[in-house]
Amino acid sequence: MTLFLEQLLNGMQLGVTLFLLAAGLTLIFGIMGVINLAHGSIYMIGAYAGTYVAATTGSFLLGIPAGLAAAALTGIAVEFLVVRQLYDRDHLDQVLATFGLILIFNQAITMIFGRQPLFVGLPEALSGSVELLPGLFYPLYRLAIIAVGLLVAVGLYLLINRTRVGMLVRAGSTNREMVRALGVDIRLLYTAVFALGALLAGLAGYMAGPILAVQVGMGEQILITTFVVVVIGGVGSVKGAFYASLLLGVTDTALRAYLPGLLRQVMVGPEADALGAGISSMGIYLLMAIVLLIRPKGLFAGST
């Protein structure tokens, strides 16, 4: 039972990390109609900038503003210099341009930091484990990630549903032309949304730093999964991205943890392990296929 709860927490932690990335991606895709493959690179830049500052100064807290600022500024620069030219072009052009950005960012990071992964330790205050239930020890840092992810989710909910900016964002994702016709500076709004998305990606990257290896190409690994989240949740829906991230995180973790064991009941050990690993790595894509069969526009596509 404690093992199951621990796996559930692991799933949630993966889920909220995905959410931080997917929220930005779905906003950018839903509101501006831009497919931004470079979102993963911004995640990487946030991780590198934050981790570098944290490793140099020895302070985990100082890394936070550094990572966030680097990611947001990169986001603004990307929007201003590249994506802005592409709003009226078709998706293929956007994919090509942002794919080019991935290559450029990866190479630039390699030139600045080299190929060796960066290292930063856990912040001292968060390095231990806590006993949540008798016998259930869980690393404090992972709990902190879950907490930050949920806080961001609440914050985004309030921002989008309770503020004027949020109203414009919602309006923009429903009917872009009408918002423009009403005299709203849509270009400024676009830049702001892009920067916000980049900021969240940078946050996800920096928080992943002490757990994962901060290395070139780390963004592409998670980008595909993030796109799956966006598609399952419904393009443009932050609420959808939230539920889809958690669903995906928990499903993925549960398949990894339990499928080989279940298969071992019906077949020989090594084959069950290999087949289980195979199916669990397909799991999220199967989930996406099933969701799309039932709801072709995603779980929460109502808002668009």
Partner: peptide
Amino acid sequence: YTRLDQTDFAA
């Protein structure tokens, strides 16, 4: 057997 692109091993 883990996934080749897997970086989180919490499970």
